[in-house]
């Protein structure tokens, strides 16, 4: 049953990202990279390998739909690889504790901190690989920050709505 929910979220996020959010550019820059929410919500005891594999399949699905083979996959694999360490460092809970990261369980402050770190890492990786040069450094930084901020807002919104159910 848990797998079914996971696959449902997977399809939903891929479709939403590729068809809608990739075409959203607030103030000509900020694009919400909401699909990373999928990686954020894995249980804290998920092993890194399966996280990386899920990240790769998520990234490649979005890539295929948006004509950027490998771009999102590379960034998402990197993010999935870093997530366990970030969660371990940034959550105030016992490391052996098993929990699903979220506002309800971690509290708003801790979850925001953890989400911001993961999202920022993802946005930085994605935009650096995409631009593949530091020629327009200021624009790159602006894009990374605006994407990360936009994504964080979306993730917090979705998570608080989900919590109330």
């Amino acid at each position: 049953m848990q797998h079914l929910t996971r696959i449902k979220w997977f399809v939903l996020l891929v479709i939403l990202q590729a068809l809608v959010l990739n075409h959203v550019h607030f103030g000509r820059f900020a694009t919400p990279l909401l699909y990373i929410y999928f990686i954020l919500k894995f249980n804290s005891d998920t092993n890194t390998k399966s996280l990386i594999l899920w990240g790769f399949s998520l990234g490649i699905c979005i890539d295929i739909l948006s004509n950027t083979p490998g771009l999102n996959a590379a960034a998402t694999v990197f993010t999935a690889f870093c997530r366990p360490k970030l969660l371990h460092v940034l959550s105030t809970r016992d490391p052996d504790d098993k929990f699903e990261p979220g506002i309800r369980i971690m509290g708003l402050a801790a979850f925001s901190r953890y989400a911001l770190a993961v999202i920022f890492l993802h946005s930085a990786a994605l935009n650096i690989i995409d631009a593949f040069s530091f020629v327009n450094f200021n624009i790159l930084i602006l894009k990374i920050l605006s994407d990360a901020l936009m994504t964080l807002v979306c993730v917090l919104c979705i998570d608080s709505v989900r919590r109330e159910r």
């Binding site: 594999l53 771009l71 590379a74």
Partner: peptide, 29 residues
């Protein structure tokens, strides 16, 4: 998991560069 990470990153970058060189695979677009 380090091995898997390196492997999948390599796959991603190969895809990225193959598409950027002329005429990549249609299946990944």
């Amino acid at each position: 998991h380090w091995l898997l990470f390196v492997l999948l990153e390599t796959v991603s970058f190969v895809l990225l560069f193959r598409f950027n060189n002329y005429q990549g695979s249609v299946y990944f677009t």
